[in-house]
């Protein structure tokens, strides 16, 4: 039971702490009003990473095979590409 408990909880606790840390990094970028394409893409990249961690560890999709394993990742990739492209376009104009 103890081994099972450790297996279930401990990785998620680390992921929780990582998500909190990444959130503070994003807030730091925002509150200091850092701007520009690279900064925006970095904030977007952090968001996509956080999303993937939530999908894998909180939603439990890393224990799933087939389409559902990648459902959240596909969504993140699609919206990440669209948002990234829109910000790239606005930086070029």
């Amino acid at each position: 039971m103890a081994i099972k408990d450790k297996y279930l909880i401990r990785p998620c606790t680390w992921i929780f702490l990582l998500l909190m840390g990444l959130t503070v990094v994003t807030w730091f970028i925002g509150v200091n009003q850092f701007s520009g394409l690279q900064i925006s893409l970095m904030a977007l990249g952090i968001a996509l990473l956080k999303g993937q961690l939530i999908g894998d560890y909180f939603m439990g999709l890393r224990q799933v095979s087939g389409f559902w394993r990648w459902a959240v990742a596909i969504w993140l990739l699609l919206i990440g590409s669209l948002i990234g492209y829109a910000f790239y376009m606005s930086a070029q104009s």
């Binding site: 959130t23 994003t26 807030w27 970028i29 925002g30 009003q33 701007s35 900064i39 925006s40 904030a43 977007l44 952090i46 968001a47 996509l48 956080k50 999303g51 939530i54 999908g55 939603m59 959240v72 993140l76 919206i79 948002i83 910000f87």
Partner: peptide, 14 residues
């Protein structure tokens, strides 16, 4: 999950 994208998009990215 949705808020993880909404937060930087609306509050941070510029």
């Amino acid at each position: 999950l949705v808020w993880m994208v909404l937060f930087p998009l609306v509050y941070v990215m510029n």
